[in-house]
Write a protein that binds this DNA or RNA. Structure first.
Length: 416
RNA sequence: GCCGGAGUGUGGUAGAGGUAUCCCUUGGGACUGUGGAUCCCAAGACCUGGGUUCGAAUCCCAGCUCCGGCCCCA
């Protein structure tokens, strides 16, 4: 009986894995250069960790289960909650701000579609212990820099939930109603939103206006509505800093994020092409306060998470397969094989090197070399051994020379 | 959870009621010191389960999976 792969999961073949590893190492390298350190958390956690953050409804889309002793567990559907839990449990004493990055697989029980899978990978970074504009600017600049270094065409949308909340509060929206209103803004449910505002006896037009406006016009309007706003000042500082960083973005106060723990800026990055179909968002981030929910001090954080799979789908790799060398013993005789293994070992100190393990004839070995797209063959036979040399054959041009192993290695080092 | 479309060797395909075509892939052999060659041998598929029929890859139903979309999200 044939066992099928589970719905919404993927196998990765060598070509794809090479690409994924390449993107992964770039992400790591960039984060390290910005001074972030890697952390890693378990693949499963107490289900509570996620319901506290996102509400009971998330149970519907999690892989959740009971273990043998009755613990209610879940495969992690995202990494922010585990990272903040880790911080509360292990990193509270670290100097602030604490800068970490992470990379790991997540699981969600949802209908798979283009660029959406049941097992997917996230790469993210967090600054824990600051919600200053400087920290927010750095996080946005880091995400922006990742996009730039990967050569991805994308647009960055920036909003500020703190400001929106202040405006709503100023207009008379009660704290009790706040999350409902925010959720509607997030969904872009205009009619519902207007209805709700009306039912509270609030004029929704001004709010709509602000949500719809883009760029400087939105700021102007906000200045108009709120006499003195801390959030507005904060946002303006952030904009100034982003300018210093050279980050390009669209201001869009309609980005809300329905969840209550977001407090400051929020941003999203969308791929500009149409390689991702309906799933264009490749990154989401913002400033939030989660630590207190998990039993820590009320520590602000700011961070982002990239959809790693989407990133790799959009990333164009400029290089091909690695260059391979194949050592070809001419005959399956002890002294030839001995020499071939010795030579292979020497070559493996430097190059991706193959040696026959099928007891094949020379011509079959060369046919195999061709099938795996090897670039060079090092032919070892009695004639070569007698002279203390090997034959190096360039499999692309067909040229070959009888040279010493040292010369061969030197030559390959120049070419590969 | 919902709405479309699709499932034939690893992959690409032909087949519209009579047990599967071609490309191909893999292994072996011929050859025995030079490779995308040739020849020979072998192996490799109708998504699953029901139904209709003398007979189903083909028609019908259900399920599963994939692709795309809605909701939501990364």
């Amino acid at each position: 009986m044939r066992i099928e792969r589970v719905k919404g999961t993927r196998d990765f073949l060598p070509d794809e894995m090479r690409k994924r590893r390449r993107v992964e190492s770039k992400l790591r390298e960039i984060a390290e250069r910005w001074g972030y350190e890697e952390i890693s958390t378990p693949t499963f956690e107490l289900a509570e960790l996620f319901t506290i953050k996102s509400g009971e409804a998330i149970l519907e889309e999690m892989y959740e289960f009971r273990d043998r002793s009755g613990r209610h567990l879940a495969l992690r559907p995202e990494l922010t909650a585990p990272v903040i839990r880790l911080y509360v449990n292990e990193l509270k004493m670290s100097p602030k701000p604490t800068k970490v990055y992470y990379f790991g697989n997540c699981f969600r029980y949802e209908e798979p579609q283009r660029a959406r899978y049941r097992e997917f990978w996230q790469f993210g970074a967090e600054i824990i212990g600051s919600d200053r504009p400087e920290a927010e600017a750095e996080i946005i600049a880091l995400a922006y820099s990742i996009i730039k270094e990967l050569n991805i065409e994308a647009e960055l949308h920036l909003g500020h939930v703190g400001l929106i909340r202040e405006i709503l509060r100023g207009a008379g929206v009660s704290d009790a109603m706040m999350s409902r209103v925010m959720r509607l803004i997030d969904k872009g449910a205009r009619d519902e939103l207007m209805e709700l505002m009306q039912s509270m006896g609030i004029d929704g037009d001004a709010l709509m206006h602000i949500i719809d406006l883009r760029g400087e016009a939105a700021i102007e309007e906000a200045r108009h509505i709120t006499a003195h706003s801390e959030s507005l000042e904060h946002l303006e500082q952030l904009q100034q800093l982003l300018e210093y960083y050279g980050v390009g973005y669209d201001l869009n106060l309609g980005i809300a994020r329905g969840l209550d723990y977001y407090t400051g800026m929020v941003f999203e990055i969308y791929e500009s092409g149409d390689k991702l179909g309906a799933q264009r968002q490749i990154c989401g981030g913002g400033t939030y306060r989660l630590a207190a929910l998990f039993g820590g001090d009320d520590t602000p954080s700011t961070g982002f998470a990239f959809g790693f799979d989407r990133l790799t789908e959009v990333y164009c790799m400029d290089e091909n397969e690695p260059k391979r060398v194949i050592v070809v013993p001419v005959k399956n005789e002890p002294e030839v094989l001995q020499a071939a293994i010795r030579i292979t070992s020497r070559l493996r100190a430097h190059f991706n090197t193959y040696l026959d393990v099928m007891h094949r004839s020379m011509s079959d070995q060369l046919a195999y070399a061709n099938a795996i797209h090897a670039s060079y063959a090092v032919i070892v036979g009695k004639r070569e051994l007698g002279e203390g040399k090997v034959t190096l054959r360039d499999l692309e041009t067909g040229e070959q020379h009888k040279i010493t192993l040292a010369e061969c290695i030197a030559h390959l080092k120049r070419e590969i």
